Amino acid sequence: MFDGITTGEEHESGIGPLIEEEFLMYEHHQREINGRSNKGWLRTMVYSLVQQLVRQDPEYYILYVAARPDHNPRLVSYPYYTEFARPGDSTIFRHVDMNIPELLATGQGGNIVQGSVSLDVETAVTGCTEIVPGMHKRLREWWADVEARSAQGEQVRAGGRVHNVTPLWRSSDAAKYGKFGCHSVCTRSMLAYEPPLFLVLTASSYAAQYSRLAVLFEIHTI
């Protein structure tokens, strides 16, 4: 879809340099709130030209429909900001993009898919999205372990629409379910689709970003 956004000899043609200029423009106009780092998020970039281009791509839309468990073809675009992490940015977090007890009890949010388009090359060394492979099959089992620890007196936050996994994940969980790792490394222009029960327990690495990383997040939902 793209020639890439990194400038240089291999990207002198095509729309790559234009995409990069757009990222840089939005970055220039974004400020830090109360002097706090934006942690690699470009929260002012929501309706850029490149984002509109991706939203209108019929193949991207079709893949969204195919990735949804209910295959609902009647979706609307949910605007979301971009990632434009620089070396030194703290980008690490571990989360599930929904309320886990509500999902397990009612299925609420079970058809939501988050899609992304990587515009820079990820590697396990410079930074990537970490996952625990196979957790989509064992989410209910893991949450039962969390609730059992809560019954024994361990404090477990109820969570809102997004569950922070960091205070919940234990070394015993890693031994039982597997460790976080860069099992989903994206190359430039690669699409990634994350159904809620497929790539659950995801994390962005690292505590300090090693190289620049630009990602578009385009979400179609009902």
Rank of each mutant, 00 (worst) to 15 (best):
M1T: 06
F2N: 13
E10L: 13
E10G: 07
E10M: 11
E12I: 15
E12M: 12
G14W: 00
G14H: 00
I15S: 11
G16Q: 01
G16V: 04
P17D: 02
E22A: 07
E27Q: 13
E27H: 13
E32S: 12
E32N: 13
N34V: 12
N38G: 01
L42H: 02
L42F: 08
L42G: 01
R43P: 07
M45C: 13
V50E: 03
D57P: 09
P58T: 07
E59V: 14
L63Q: 12
A66H: 00
A66D: 02
A67R: 00
R68N: 10
N72E: 01
R74Y: 13
R74M: 11
S77Q: 09
P79M: 03
Y80A: 15
Y81H: 14
F84E: 00
F84H: 04
R86A: 09
P87L: 10
G88L: 09
G88I: 13
G88A: 09
D89T: 05
D89S: 08
S90E: 12
F93C: 01
D97C: 07
D97A: 04
M98D: 01
M98L: 15
N99C: 15
L103A: 01
L103R: 01
L103K: 02
T106P: 10
Q114H: 07
G115R: 00
S118W: 03
D120Y: 05
V125D: 10
V125M: 10
T126F: 12
C128E: 04
E130K: 09
I131C: 08
P133C: 09
G134N: 04
H136Y: 04
K137A: 14
R138W: 05
R138N: 11
R140L: 11
E141L: 12
W142A: 02
W143H: 05
V146S: 01
V146E: 00
A151M: 09
A151V: 05
E154N: 07
Q155D: 04
R157E: 12
R157A: 09
R157Y: 10
R157C: 03
R157H: 09
G159E: 07
G159R: 10
H163C: 13
P167Y: 09
L168W: 08
W169L: 02
W169C: 02
S172Y: 00
S172A: 15
D173K: 06
K176L: 15
Y177Q: 08
G178V: 07
K179W: 10
F180T: 01
F180S: 03
G181I: 06
C182M: 06
H183D: 12
V185N: 06
V185Y: 03
V185F: 04
V185E: 05
C186I: 01
C186Q: 08
S189A: 15
S189F: 00
Y193L: 11
P195I: 00
L199M: 03
L201A: 04
L201C: 08
L201H: 09
T202S: 08
T202R: 14
A203Y: 03
S205M: 07
A208R: 15
A208K: 15
A208C: 07
A208Q: 14
L213H: 11
L213T: 12
A214K: 06
V215Y: 02
V215A: 00
L216E: 03
F217N: 13
F217E: 03
I219V: 15
H220T: 02
